[in-house]
């Protein structure tokens, strides 16, 4: 895939506070890329720099190989779906969507055609004459997407567009957004702090924290092979254990050695080890690897969240099996459930 946007050493300071610490990022054509991270990690700033609403303190934004860092937003072939939609309150749905086309002085008949086509795409074909205030949150969301897409941008920026919707609608819109992206075949750059949203929709996830990129990868990579403690903690729940990398395919933690599938770390190196709660099994005493006692059980709907206290720490386990508090059990897991990561500062 061709590179469409390249961020090179992007740095941003606000009043002496560094918000972005030299970001390097390649965004490809037709890619659904998500910038994921906690609030204040710099993801929105990155997006705003790409959109032209914020100027980087240093570094370059290349679009199709050309530096656009100094180009004002109205000259960029990029459109944005804003966090609170930013629909024009004095125009109806049709005029909102036609805004960009009218600026380009297109023919009225062409504009009407395009607006109708895009309204059909987002499933609002009969809403052209509706007033913005007469639309539900989900419908406003679609209008905002339609208004951006109708200009046929090469890149669509989306700044937490689903944040204001309720859970059910959000899930439906996630699927819908992904479908729209496939249908129009353009690059989406999506900002969110919701890891589940990122995992559902993205081709590529960029995990950010503290103004720096922590990991870039596909959803499966990010989930299964987190590169550090931050990523492991941020994406899904996890048990993070400090351990020792004995040699290739062998790690030591909680005073025992375990076979694993990781290699390439130094022998005797201190590492962090991730054990996902859903990868841990609770078995009868003597049949597993680590001994412990069940200290609490929480019902979470689909599964139970069970805390198992061992001599070293408390493990979180997700299981659908019924257990009882106070029972002595063993924890079991497979070699591939052990994920070894570089050790970094504690969070």
């Amino acid at each position: 895939m061709k590179k469409l946007i390249e961020l090179e050493n992007l740095t941003k300071e606000f009043n002496g506070q560094v918000v972005l610490k030299g970001i390097h990022l390649d965004i490809h054509e037709n890619e659904f890329m998500t910038l994921l991270g906690p609030s204040g990690c710099g993801k929105t700033t990155t997006l705003r720099i790409i959109g032209g609403f914020e100027e980087a303190s240093a570094g370059e934004v290349l679009f199709d190989g050309i530096d656009i860092s100094k180009l004002p937003p109205h000259k960029r072939e990029i459109n944005t779906v804003f966090q609170k939609y930013a629909l024009f309150p004095h125009m109806n749905v049709h005029d909102n969507i036609a805004f960009g086309l009218k600026i380009k002085k297109m023919d009225k008949s062409i504009i009407d055609q395009k607006v109708l086509k895009i309204l059909t795409l987002v499933g609002l074909e009969n809403y052209g004459n509706r007033h913005i205030s007469q639309l539900s949150g989900g419908q406003q969301q679609r209008v905002a997407i339609a208004r951006a897409l109708v200009n046929e941008p090469k890149v669509l920026l989306l700044d937490e567009p689903l944040g204001a919707l309720d859970l059910k609608l959000r899930k439906a819109m996630q699927v819908e957004l992904k479908n729209i992206q496939k249908e129009v075949g353009i690059t989406f750059i999506y900002v969110t702090h919701d890891q589940e949203e990122a995992l559902t929709m993205s081709d590529t996830i960029v995990v950010m924290n503290d103004g720096a990129i922590q990991q870039i990868g596909t959803p499966t990579d990010i989930y299964n092979e987190p590169e550090n403690r931050f990523v492991a903690k941020f994406i899904g729940e996890s048990n993070i254990v400090e351990g020792l990398f004995v040699k290739d395919f062998l790690v030591e933690f909680d005073g025992q050695q375990f076979v694993c599938v990781d290699k390439g770390f130094d022998e005797g190196q201190e590492v962090d080890i991730v054990l996902r709660p859903e990868d841990l099994d609770i078995v009868e005493v003597g049949q597993g690897k680590i001994e412990g006692v069940i200290s609490s059980i929480l019902f979470k709907g689909v599964h139970y969240e069970i805390m198992v206290e061992t001599s070293e720490r408390t493990y979180t386990v997700h299981t659908t099996d019924i257990n009882e508090i106070g029972k002595k059990v063993n924890l079991d897991f497979w070699p591939e459930d052990i994920h070894v990561m570089e050790k970094m500062g504690t969070y």
């Binding site: 959109g51 032209g52 609403f53 004002p72 937003p73 109205h74 990029i78 459109n79 944005t80 804003f82 966090q83 609170k84 930013a86 629909l87 024009f88 309150p89 805004f99 960009g100 600026i103 380009k104 208004r147 951006a148 200009n151």
Partner: peptide, 21 residues
Amino acid sequence: DKSLLEASQDLGASPIQTFFK
């Protein structure tokens, strides 16, 4: 809402067009 002005520019309107529209 300041984001309305950003939206207008995002859609291709120059600052002057944004002011009047």
